[in-house]
Design a binder for these strands. Structure first.
Length: 189
DNA sequence: TATAAGATCGCCT
DNA sequence: GGCGATCTTATAC
C-alpha cells in the first residue's frame, strides 16, 4: 500500500500491512491503544478512502457497565460474543452509526469504538467524532458482522508515524457507575 | 404493544 | 452550555 500524501500530517509516503485476526484477538484496551495511528480503509463511492485513526475507546467485557454486552447476550450484542475482527455497528440517537471492532477471544465480549480519524490522500472529510467517522465511511447497520480482516473494510498497521497517545475516561457513559472513570479512551496527538 | 433512554451532533443562546 | 432530532433496543406492562 502506498499513499502520496496525508492531509495535515506532512507525510509523503505511507506503507503498512493489513491487521490480521491475531491482532484483534487480544484485550480491547491493548487493541484500542495500538489502533491509534493505524489506518482505516474502505472503498466509498468507487474511491478507496483511508484515514489515520486518532481516537478510540475500549469496552472491555460483560463486567464493564459501559459496554453494551453488560446487558447480556442479546441479538444486539451477539456479535461481540463472537470471534474477533468483525464489525459491531449500532445506531445511536436515531441518527448516528457507531463503528466498533470486536476484540478478544470468542465468548469474551470486548470491542473497540472508532471515534475519530485524520483523512488521508487529500480526502476532504471531517472525521472528528464517531458519528461523523461512520457517516463519511458510509457505515450502516448493514455492515454489522463484516469481517474487518477482509478486503471490503479493513485496517492497516501504522508504519512509521509515531503518535503520542493520551488516555482519558470514555465519553457519554455517565450511567456506567464506577466504570465511568476508567481510563479507556485513547487520543493520538 | 408501549415506553424510555442512548458509546452524538449541530444549532441556539 | 443547553436542547432537539430520530429510531433501535431493552424492558416493562
Amino acid at each position: 500500500m502506498e499513499v502520496k500524501t496525508i492531509n495535515g500530517l506532512g507525510l509523503s509516503r505511507y506503507r503498512g500491512k493489513k491487521l490480521e485476526r491475531a491482532f484483534f484477538r487480544r484485550g480491547a484496551e491493548a487493541v484500542a491503544r495500538e489502533l491509534i495511528g493505524s489506518v482505516l480503509v474502505r472503498t466509498v463511492d468507487g474511491v478507496r478512502r483511508m484515514a489515520m485513526i486518532t481516537e478510540t475507546e475500549a469496552y472491555v467485557g460483560t463486567h464493564d457497565l459501559a459496554c453494551h454486552a453488560s446487558k447480556g447476550r442479546t441479538r444486539r450484542t451477539e456479535i461481540m460474543f463472537g470471534p474477533p475482527g468483525y464489525a459491531y455497528v449500532y445506531l445511536i440517537y436515531g441518527m448516528y452509526h457507531m463503528l466498533n471492532i470486536v476484540t478478544a477471544d470468542e465468548g469474551d465480549a470486548q470491542a473497540v469504538l472508532l471515534r475519530g480519524a485524520q483523512p488521508m490522500d487529500h480526502w476532504d472529510a471531517v472525521l472528528t467524532g464517531p458519528g461523523k467517522l461512520a457517516g463519511a465511511f458510509q457505515i450502516t447497520l448493514a455492515d454489522r458482522g463484516t469481517d474487518m480482516t477482509g478486503d471490503e473494510l479493513y485496517i492497516v498497521k501504522n508504519a512509521g508515524y509515531h503518535l503520542n497517545v493520551i488516555t482519558t475516561p470514555r465519553i457519554g457513559i455517565d450511567y456506567a457507575g464506577e466504570w465511568k472513570h476508567a481510563p479507556l479512551r485513547f487520543v493520538g496527538t
